[in-house]
Design a protein around this nucleic acid. Sequence first.
DNA 1: CAAATCATGTAATGTGTTACATGATTCG
DNA 2: CGAATCATGTAACACATTACATGATTTG
Lengths: 177, 177
Amino acid sequence: MTIEFAILGFLSYEPLTGYDLKKRFAGSDLLHWSGNSNQSYPALVALRQAGQVAQTVEQPPRGPARKVYALTEAGRAALREWLLATPDPPTLRHPLLVHLLWADQLTPPEQADLLARYEEELNIRLLMLREQARRQPAEQAVRPLREAAQRRWLAVFEEELAWIRELRAELAAAEGG
Amino acid sequence: MTIEFAILGFLSYEPLTGYDLKKRFAGSDLLHWSGNSNQSYPALVALRQAGQVAQTVEQPPRGPARKVYALTEAGRAALREWLLATPDPPTLRHPLLVHLLWADQLTPPEQADLLARYEEELNIRLLMLREQARRQPAEQAVRPLREAAQRRWLAVFEEELAWIRELRAELAAAEGG
DNA sequence: CAAATCATGTAATGTGTTACATGATTCG
DNA sequence: CGAATCATGTAACACATTACATGATTTG
């Protein structure tokens, strides 16, 4: 999956500049492209070459020129084709689980400490995600699937938190009992 | 997280060749480095330069030379240091959720079909994961955390399957009702 | 007046995948 | 005898991140 399709998705709502897109990517964890200018700007150039977006240069009375991009018919068709394609299963990178493959070599207190620190990190992450969700303006249009996607993203991290708490409890019980 | 630490982890059990490591990575989804010679061989060279592994060249009566790598004391210390460090939260790439952000543009039958195809893909993935888990030989030593990690990896995909089934049911109910 | 935001990009680096290249041995 | 496995690597490419570079405008 390349960033191009997500850009087409955003442009299907409204015309935007590269900078606008950059902010949208930076403000969303689900859209993992982390809002670096290095990706949105070249991607727009490529989409334009493919005829999927049209560029309008706005020269405001003062300040730098703004390049506003809008979806073309070809762009809308490409977006639709992509939406219909079967998505790959999720890809997960889970550093803690990799640690745990060899963490039996640590002493019980070291293990407990490791898991406690991880839970803290996870909590911080969840706080950020909830704040991110809160900041998102309520949309005028009802989009059930979009909302389901956003809820699911949060749920994955909440399930992770529940799991780590359970594991810590089990470990404490095994040690203390 | 680089592949080096996982290599140190494997070598903490027994000396291995680059080829052995390659197979171990290829056979594990949790260890996301997908068993390409491009990573294990250069990583071993780097680890050796860092003094964390020692190389022994075995020249069998017939056939190519085997380079067997064993953990050094410095390697064991590096592994321990890494194990004690706080792991980053998981990184998730979820193409379906990205689709869903814009899938409200599709017709209900198209949406239903997309989710059905995704569930099929997920099922295949789960079958492979279970098969992978089954193939793993029972270890002599009891390693509770290692087992917890492997169970958790499977559980994440099982939770995903449960979620997609629920979402499909909701969608069908909304349409049918 | 300093910092943040708007707005456009490029360069260097890291990380990971697929494919290429070579050659012996073993299994069906 | 052809395919898979053992065994070691290299090359090309794709994808992502951090940092660099520039300069105007707006906000505190």
